[in-house]
Design a protein around this nucleic acid. Structure first.
Lengths: 144, 144
DNA sequence: TGATATCTTGATAATGATTCTCAAGTTCAA
DNA sequence: TTGAACTTGAGAATCATTATCAAGATATCA
């Protein structure tokens, strides 16, 4: 099940871009929206298969790119070279704290850092678009 | 030509890890040390070929990983999915401001942000190891 | 409602960076 | 000098992601 808000956000985006609606696109959004955070494309593929048997890998990738463009999804490039995706519809931006032992990912936000980042953009004459901040360390469970 | 300091840093690391010295490893370090910033493995391969004809791709990758472990080199995961490498021996840590139009990379440092990042680690019970911060935007040359 | 142009899809091949394999070559401590 | 252990180069293998393309779905306009 998907909020009407998500569905219409997708619809609006497609309309705006001259693209078309499809059941596959809706299902992928649903999986990203309801599934765990930080899913890989492969995991999203498997989960979507359950709701829409027969969907292809290419469609998963295409749709994920689309959802990112629509601002409904965010792509996270991980250390292992595999991308992970998470729902971002109306969510607050956040960064990631990643344990290098167990791979646990903690989401963090620091408005102060965000502000300083904006300043760095400005000082260097850049028009800000987005950023990625990943902090790697050893989490308290793995420390001992 | 390579500073004695770099050479002995490599030597020390190899000794400490029970590994062996080789001309190839020295040449790769030299290329990373003297070459432009943000070289891809492919570029490092080509440049090293000039100094050490016959060197293989596998050796380049293996050596880059080694140099990263030794702290002489830093790997930068770029948006295009290709890793870039830069010398890091005794250098000050810095982050990257990347133009999404022309690909230009500007190095930036912000001690304030560094401090806040440390705090995020601590607050979440993580032992800090390293971080990656990449700011994406459009540079002043591409803006108009 | 139907025709049509355009967009999407799924299967599969292709790509491309990185890693693995293994026999032959090097290094270095004793 | 010798030998165990580490490295190397060539090329095959991996694996995530993209491209291709014919067949299918969608939406627009009459």
């Amino acid at each position: 099940m998907l909020d009407e808000k998500d569905k219409s956000a997708l619809h609006d985006f497609l309309l705006r871009e001259g693209l078309k609606f499809s059941a596959q696109r809706l299902k992928v959004l649903e999986v990203v929206r309801r599934g765990a955070r930080h899913l890989t494309a492969g995991e999203i593929y498997k989960h979507t298969q359950a709701k829409y048997p027969g969907i292809g890998y290419a469609t998963i990738y295409r749709t994920l790119r689309l959802l990112c463009q629509a601002g409904l999804c965010v792509e996270l490039k991980c250390e292992d070279g595999v991308c992970r995706y998470e729902y971002a519809g109306g969510a607050v931006h956040h960064d990631h704290l990643i344990c290098t032992k167990c791979g646990r990912i903690v989401e963090v936000v620091d408005p102060e850092i965000e502000r300083l980042q904006e300043r760095l953009f400005k000082v260097n004459g850049f028009l800000p678009q987005r950023h990625r901040m990943e902090l790697y360390g050893i989490c308290n469970r793995c420390k001992k």
